[in-house]
Design a protein around this nucleic acid. Structure first.
Lengths: 208, 208
DNA sequence: GTAAAGATACCTTCGTGTATGTATATAAAG
DNA sequence: CTTTATATACATACACGAAGGTATCTTTAC
C-alpha cells in the first residue's frame, strides 16, 4: 500500500523498471500502457507516476539502466595499457562482447532501444547519450591506432581515423544482426574472430 | 469528392504515401494519426481507409516502396560477370551505395524503417522481407567469394562464409551510422573506400 | 503529526473503426 | 446517343475504447 520503508520503495521502483523492460520488449514502447506495466509489477499506475512522473520519464530511467558497450570498451582500453595497442583493442572488445552476450538483461534493453522504440524529438536525451558514447569510443580507438602507428605497428593502408570508423561500424553492424535473434553466430565467437581478423589486416605484424 | 478517374485515384494514393512518409518521419509511426496524414495529403481519412484499409496497411504499402540495398547489390552481382569476383563485388556495392546516397526518398524511407517504427508482431511482413533479402545477399556474396577462392584470388585467412558475413555486417553498420544524420562521412566516399579496403584484405593480389 | 509511497477515482483527450452519405466515371441497355 | 445502373472513390459523422494526467484518499514509517 503506502509509505513502506525506503528500501521497499526502491524495490518497487526496480520492479517497475523490470516490468517496463518486459512489456516494452513485447509490445513496443508506444503501444505499452502504463497500466499494463504497473499491473505486471504488482502495483498500480499511482506508483509509476510517483517514481517516474510520466511515460517518458520511465523510458529514460530504463535507458540509463543500459550500460553501453561503447563505454565498456572505452573503459577497458583506457585502463591498464600493457600489451601492444592493437592487441589491447582486440582484448578490450573481446571481453566486452563476451560480457554482453552473457547478460540477457542488457540484451533485452538493447533490443528495446534499437527495435522497440521510435526516436522522435522527445527521445533526445537517450540519443544524446549514445551519440556522446560513440564520439568517445571513436576518439579512444583513434588514439590507440595512432599509438600503434607511432610504434610502427599499423599498416600505412589504414590511417587511424579510418580504422577507428571502420571498427565502430563493424561492431555496430554485427550487434544489429545479432539482436535480430535469427543470427547464426555468437558475439564471443564469430564476431570477436571478425574483429581480430580486421585488426590483423591493419597490423604490419600478425597479432599474437 | 468522389469517383474521379482511375488515374486521379492513383494520384491520391501516391499523395497519401508521400504524406505518410513525411508524417511518419517527423512523428514516428505510432504517434502519427491517420487524420494528420490524410490532411497533409489534402484529403480525409476516408481516402486512407479506402486505399489501405488501416494504418498497418498504409505502413506496409510504404514499406514496399523501399527498394532494399540488399536486392540492388544482389542484382548487380548476378548480372554481367565480366571482372574478377572481388572487383565485381566492390563495383556492385559502390554503385548501389552511390545510388542510395543520391536518392533522398530512399533515405527517408530507410530512416522510418530503422528509427521511426517499433518492430512488434504485426510488423512481421516488413521484417520478413528484409530477412529474405539478407539471406539472399549473403548467399550471393558467399558464392562470389567461393569463385574467388577457386581462382586462387581469396586469402585463406578468409573463408567465404566468414567474409560474406563480415561484409554484410560492415555495410549494415555504416548504413546505420549514416542514417543518424550526424555522420561525418559519405557513402560514396568513406564507406566505399572501407569496403574496398576490406576486400583488399581478403585478396591475395591487390584490387585493381 | 507529517510527509513519503502508493491506491483509487475521475475526467478528458485522442484516435480509430465503422457506417453511411454522395458524387461521378463507366458500362450496359434501349 | 441517351438513359440507367452500378461500382468506385472518397467525405462526413458517430460511437467507442484506450490511455494518460491529475486530484484526492489511505496507509505507514519516522
Amino acid at each position: 500500500m503506502a509509505r513502506r520503508t525506503k528500501q521497499e520503495a526502491d524495490e518497487t521502483r526496480e520492479a517497475l523498471l523490470d516490468a517496463a523492460e518486459h512489456v516494452f520488449l513485447e509490445r513496443g514502447v508506444a503501444r505499452a500502457s502504463l497500466d499494463e506495466i504497473a499491473r505486471f509489477a504488482g502495483c498500480t499506475r499511482g506508483a509509476v507516476h510517483w517514481h517516474f512522473g510520466d511515460k517518458l520519464g520511465l523510458f529514460l530511467a530504463l535507458d540509463e539502466r543500459l550500460v553501453l558497450l561503447q563505454d565498456e570498451v572505452k573503459r577497458r582500453i583506457c585502463d591498464g595499457e600493457t600489451t601492444p595497442p592493437l592487441e589491447h583493442i582486440a582484448r578490450a572488445i573481446t571481453t566486452s562482447l563476451t560480457e554482453l552476450e552473457n547478460d540477457p538483461r542488457r540484451r533485452r534493453l538493447l533490443t528495446i532501444m534499437l527495435q522497440r522504440c521510435e526516436y522522435v524529438a522527445e527521445m533526445a536525451p537517450a540519443l544524446l547519450r549514445r551519440r556522446q558514447a560513440d564520439a568517445a569510443i571513436r576518439a579512444t580507438l583513434r588514439d590507440s591506432f595512432c599509438r600503434a602507428a607511432e610504434r610502427g605497428e599499423l599498416s600505412p593502408e589504414w590511417p587511424p581515423e579510418r580504422a577507428a570508423l571502420f571498427l565502430q561500424a563493424l561492431i555496430s553492424g554485427f550487434l544489429n544482426e545479432w539482436l535480430r535473434g535469427e543470427a547464426d553466430f555468437t558475439l564471443a565467437g564469430e564476431v570477436c574472430a571478425a574483429v581480430r581478423g580486421f585488426l590483423s589486416c591493419t597490423a604490419v605484424r600478425p597479432l599474437s
